[in-house]
Design a protein around this nucleic acid. Structure first.
Lengths: 210, 210
DNA sequence: TTTTGTTTAAAACGTATGTTTGAAACGTAT
DNA sequence: ATACGTTTCAAACATACGTTTTAAACAAAA
């Protein structure tokens, strides 16, 4: 179908440009130019720029959400009532991300970039959208963390969760840039997997800090 | 002087609006309206919107930079050759921030917001600006961390430094929003100092994770 | 082939933005 | 008091944006 073709081309271009420049700084004209489609196609297929932004999110978060939920379900079924360690919880989430972004290197950065933008930027319509659509996964992960760190008081646990989120979103979204510095400064290359390999122990140590 | 008055009113308004909405989403008209000055004043006093953004940064980072440098100098003079722990290093930085943002509650969030935006957003002119103007402080703090964590390999230390930066920038910049959730969800209020009190141990544990 | 609904195309619309202009108001030193 | 450099002001300018419109191209069914 030519319909789907145009829609996908728009989503691909938008996803990339949003991550590069942010939402407000990315014009529909640059998106349609990159996608090689007509300007009016965005408003025709998505209705508005706002809806396009949300559509880009859905394409990312939807599969991620389902993947993590499914793998957690599977683990719970095989090990009923088991308590996961912080490291294990993070691995489940990281695996979900890896699956969603698989194939395209750099798509992890785009994912994180969009997440960070949605969290910080915006007049709230994106945040509200995230909140209403994906709270159940948030609650589930939070419950797992709570079981893994029973000695922690809930408020501090809440904040540590967001410290983790911030460390991940901030660094992984600027990964390309930060990796370039590593290459220049340390004369070593650095794969995405290595960075995640550095990140998870950092996060796990942080959340179980005494 | 009426000159300085207008300049300061513009900087105050811009700082706040930039932090609330981001750079591109904040118009000069909204800034001048909030400041109660004429629209043309921005271009008259600063030359352009870009220069205004940089001026807002300078007003923040300049004093912060000098404060941290000075307090580190003082400590080095009193305890020559001493090795600071990660916690101590973070305290020095945190104290510098507290001093710069003192008086205005919420100015810490603005500070972090701007830092995050400069790091993630922008076509590079801000990042280049930060890089050229404030690398010496970065190098100094990085050296202190290196001495505090000699067992860490330099590349992983580099990444952990940015994990810390990310955790701080992300959470503290959204502090207002996150604190509101805490109040709603846990029926407890949460001061800025408490959040920083939660943050520093998290960061310290992360950077010395084995 | 004709018809009907869907998708693309080019152009235009209205609005909001950053910037510039030229005159008025201001403060200050002579 | 006058003259001069500085600052303010209202208005206009050019441009870029999101969106709408109208017609053409297309695909599939009758």
């Amino acid at each position: 179908m030519s319909h789907n073709d145009t829609v996908i081309k728009i989503l691909d271009a938008a996803e990339q440009l949003f991550a590069e420049k942010g939402f407000a700084e990315t014009s529909l004209r640059s998106i349609t130019a990159k996608a090689g489609v007509n300007l009016a196609a965005v408003n025709y297929h998505f209705g508005s720029k706002k809806s396009l932004i949300q559509a880009v999110f859905v394409r990312f978060l939807g599969p991620f959400y389902k993947l993590v939920e499914a793998s957690l379900d599977a683990h719970e079924k095989q090990n009923p009532g088991s308590i996961l360690s912080p490291e294990d919880i993070l691995k489940f989430v990281a695996r979900g991300m890896a699956s969603v972004t698989n194939g395209d290197r750099g798509r992890l950065a785009i994912f994180m970039r969009l997440l960070g933008l949605a969290y910080n930027q915006g007049q709230g319509h994106l945040r509200k959208f995230l909140k209403t659509e994906y709270t159940s996964l948030y609650i589930r992960v939070m419950d797992l963390i709570a079981k893994a760190t029973p000695e922690l008081n809930p408020v501090e646990r809440y904040w540590r969760f967001h410290f983790m989120l911030g460390a991940a979103a901030f660094t992984l979204s600027s990964m390309e840039h930060l990796r370039a510095i590593v290459e220049y400064e340390f004369e070593t290359s650095c794969t995405e997997e290595e960075v995640v390999g550095y990140l998870l122990p950092f996060l796990a140590a942080g959340i179980r800090a005494s």
